[in-house]
Computed example of a mutant assay.
Amino acid sequence: MELPVVVGVDGSEPSLRAADWAADEAVLRGLTLRLVYASLWERYEGSVPAEDPGRPVEEALAEDVIDTAARRARQRQPDLKVIADLAPDEAEYALVRESAGATLLVVGSRGRSGVAETLLGSVGMAVAARAGCPVVVLRGSHDNQAVTAARGGVVVGVGDGAEVRAVVAFAAEEARLRGVSLHAVRAWKCPAHEPVDHPLLVGEPARVYEQRAADALEAALAAASPEPTVYRRTAEGHARRVLVAASHEADLLVVGVRRRPDHGTPRLGRTAHAVLHHAACPVAVVPHR
């Protein structure tokens, strides 16, 4: 059974833009779109009068939110099958639970305090850390489309470990669906504590680490066997800075996350944490299994 693309909505403009993006993504993949509204999400300004005086206003509000999002998705993609559902739970728990039966989970970037759309909200961060499927967070000044006019391509950050092939494979499929190129990026650094008289480093200490990065990049791409045109790039510096910089010319940035338990609570690594807060384009977080 093909699993749907799931998107969390709450009536806010960022969540409606996420629904637009998710509708396009579902069409690209030939999948159903599932809209989920968690009825215990924080209330947004305004209210919707209940048609039935005996019905709670919150219930009317929840139904209006989900109906509006579903109607918008169907208008955007008339041939798309759309399912809308109310989840009686906190947003974080409802969406993580939904991820177990999803191909992809999409959430909007919600700002806090006076820095709206600059920092990712707590729900988006928690879902990205705990979801059982890839999560796309709608970062940046995207135009609400999975396929954009800019067609800057899909950028994937290539890290370490056998799990990287799943990350590259996901990015390659996203590039194939959009008909754009795949840009594989590997960051490297020359450790400051490396002895300069090390036999491998005599003459060109940095070159050794750059070559190791290039070799790791080739190995990851060979394992994933991506179909679209692939551009390879190694860059000196911290991975988080390299990828945030690359996001300014990308339609989608893909990173892998290796969940690290901290007293029983999953946490994102520094690279994923940084790009989710500061990337200039949508970010796909692919869990390491």
Rank of each mutant, 00 (worst) to 15 (best):
E236S: 13
A175G: 03
G111S: 07
L61F: 15
R186Y: 13
V242E: 06
E236K: 14
A128D: 03
Q77T: 04
A62E: 00
H193R: 01
L40C: 11
E58R: 13
S12M: 08
V7C: 11
G11T: 01
E204Q: 15
D20W: 06
E210Y: 06
I83W: 12
R186L: 05
S122N: 11
L217K: 03
P287A: 03
E45S: 12
Q145N: 12
V283W: 00
V65R: 04
A126F: 10
V96K: 00
V123A: 12
C133I: 00
A100Q: 04
A129W: 08
E92N: 05
A94R: 05
L104F: 10
G269T: 08
E63K: 12
C281L: 02
V123D: 10
E227N: 00
H142F: 05
A279T: 07
H193W: 15
V137C: 07
Y37F: 14
A149C: 10
A280L: 06
G108D: 03
A18C: 00
G157C: 02
Q211W: 06
A250W: 02
L33P: 06
R165Q: 15
R232H: 09
A220D: 09
A116Q: 15
A172K: 02
P199S: 04
L217Q: 05
R71V: 01
A162W: 03
L31H: 09
T148M: 10
E173G: 01
R29V: 05
A279F: 07
A219C: 07
V27I: 03
K189V: 15
S15W: 02
Q77M: 12
G153Q: 09
L243A: 01
G269H: 04
A280K: 11
A213H: 06
L105R: 10
L243M: 01
R233M: 07
L104Y: 07
V106D: 04
G132E: 14
D20Q: 01
V255I: 11
S47P: 06
W41S: 15
L119C: 02
G264H: 14
L80A: 04
V158P: 03
R139A: 03
A100F: 13
R241K: 09
R76H: 04
H273Q: 13
R34I: 11
R212W: 14
R241H: 08
